[in-house]
């Protein structure tokens, strides 16, 4: 038991990496989701086509394959990434592709009359999107974004396989050094669960904040 306690800092160090990776991945995923999701609704065919390709490609191949490709193959094209960069890139692009479909679905589900109202007020397409459509669509996106963020958190565990010392990696280190398997793995399972709870609580809080005063207005 004593030897286990001395390894707690190691696990916590890994937890920090996991949290950082999740946050950075979420930021990239959010950006990609809006770029590709709105890109799919673009009036210009090449933009739509490009966005569709991105989405289909990243949803069609496994996050795993993307991660290994970013880490092992990109250097051959002269782009060497650290494990952390490769992890953020693969996680962000992968989850961003799923998020893009959420953005598209939410924007499309906003009623026609809202688009017509924008036109009637002589708003440009961008103004209408920015001031009328997106504020309403964002509320619809949040629950699914919450699930996506948890998926991203869980996907961070795979970066341990490209030697990034996240929580899962550190648990393996502890296992190798102490020979104790149950304690490190149960600890990180609990930590992941707590992180997932914290993520979903905070996004639900955000949702409540954004819908304040809208009760009964939305149909």
């Amino acid at each position: 038991m004593h030897s286990w306690f001395s390894f707690i800092p190691l696990i916590l160090e890994g937890a920090l990496v996991t949290v950082g990776l999740t946050l950075a991945g979420c930021v990239l995923a959010l950006m990609m989701a809006f770029i590709a999701g709105l890109g799919r609704l673009s009036l210009h065919a090449p933009v739509r086509w490009l966005a569709t390709c991105y989405i289909e490609f990243f949803r069609g191949t496994s996050i795993f394959v993307q991660l290994f490709w970013a880490y092992f193959v990109l250097p051959l094209f002269g782009l060497t990434l650290t494990p952390l960069e490769a992890g953020i890139l693969a996680l962000g692009l992968n989850v961003g592709a799923y998020g893009a479909e959420v953005v598209r679905g939410a924007v499309q589900s906003i009623g026609r009359e809202q688009h017509e109202a924008c036109r009637a007020l002589n708003l440009t397409r961008w103004q209408g999107l920015r001031h009328v459509i997106l504020p309403q669509a964002l509320v619809l996106m949040l629950p699914t974004f919450c699930n996506n963020a948890i998926e991203l958190l869980k996907a961070t565990a795979v970066v341990s396989l490209i030697s990034l010392s996240d929580m899962t990696f550190q648990a393996q280190v502890v296992r190798a050094q102490t020979g104790s398997t149950a304690v490190p793995f149960i600890t990180i399972l609990l930590l992941y669960f707590v992180m997932a709870l914290a993520l979903s609580r905070s996004i639900r809080g955000l949702e409540k904040r954004l819908t304040r005063g809208l009760e009964g207005v939305r149909t």
Binding site: L153, K154, V158, S160, T168, L189, A196
Partner: peptide, 10 residues
């Protein structure tokens, strides 16, 4: 709420 990879290790 927990990663499949860790469950597999478990």
């Amino acid at each position: 709420g927990t990663p499949l990879l860790v469950q597999l290790y478990f």
